[in-house]
């Protein structure tokens, strides 16, 4: 495996019971690389990125993240999770905590930062995602787009090396998608290593270094976005792209 790989998945397999969800996944993500994963629903793309921070367990193969191998060793898992931020489709903010407390919780308890420092960081990132004025509100008082931006800020407060996005705009009303994508584009331009599962092909064209197409649990095709969109090699990719780009 190359030394500069932030994520290396090597012959990864996973089953749910008898169902083979992930088949021989090989993926390498270099530092600063942006990978956009697409594919029909049920193709295993979410499962794959959830394996990277062990929200799902792989049963075969090796996954090495930020130089640490994912095993059942809790120490390794926690070390990896400290370096990997994740943004979910359903935001998953903590509803009983204010926005500020959502942002400072992990830095204080996991990174052991002093409260004041954690709050400064939190305010910095709230500014970055353009909602500095919402710090004292509860998540339930924000719009979906605002909540997702808070969720991104929450992950960034841990100063992760890698950000995973699992369909971050799929639960949003159309008019809020842009505000979230704008934040993600900015993040990409700053050199963050990113793996995004998304159907936002405009976003993919703008930021992706590598496009990955998954179907039925395997990676069918991958490549730079220009070729991927202009001249897909696999028939399955072609069909999928024609379906989502049709309108």
């Amino acid at each position: 495996m190359p030394a500069d790989a932030m994520i290396a998945m090597h012959q990864v397999h996973k089953w749910y019971g008898d169902f083979h969800v992930l088949t021989d996944i090989n993926l390498e993500v270099k530092k600063g690389e942006k990978v956009v994963v697409c594919g029909p629903s049920g193709s295993g793309k979410s499962t794959m990125i959830r394996c990277i921070n062990r929200l799902e367990e792989h049963q075969q193969g090796r996954i090495i993240v930020a130089g640490i191998e994912l095993t059942s060793d809790l120490k390794n898992i926690e070390a990896i999770r400290r370096e990997v931020g994740m943004v979910f489709q359903q935001f998953n903010l903590f509803p009983h905590l204010t926005v500020l407390d959502n942002l400072t919780l992990a830095p204080i308890w996991v990174r052991k930062l002093p409260k004041k420092e954690a709050e400064e960081t939190a305010h910095y990132y709230l500014e970055r995602v353009r909602i500095p004025e919402q710090a004292d509100k509860y998540p339930g008082q924000l719009s979906g787009g605002q909540q997702q931006r808070v969720a991104i800020a929450r992950s960034l407060c841990m100063k992760p090396e890698i950000m995973l996005f699992d369909e971050p705009t799929s639960a949003l009303d159309p008019e809020m998608i842009k505000e979230v994508l704008d934040v993600m584009v900015e993040l990409a331009q700053e050199g963050m290593t990113m793996v995004c599962v998304t159907h936002e092909m405009g976003f993919a064209r703008t930021v992706a270094d590598t496009m990955v197409f998954m179907d039925r649990g395997e990676i069918v095709e991958r490549g730079p976005p220009k070729e991927f969109f202009a001249d897909p090699k696999s028939e399955r990719t072609r069909v999928f792209l024609s379906q989502i780009l049709a309108h």
Partner: peptide, 29 residues
């Protein structure tokens, strides 16, 4: 909701901190 637990895990909180800071305050309320 399962998402709460996943979010806590993804932040690296670990079992006991997750229970104490995320799960119990909401569950007991």
């Amino acid at each position: 909701p399962k998402g709460q637990i996943e979010a806590a895990d993804a932040l690296g909180l670990g079992y006991w901190r997750r229970i104490r800071l995320i799960v119990l305050p909401q569950a007991l309320a």
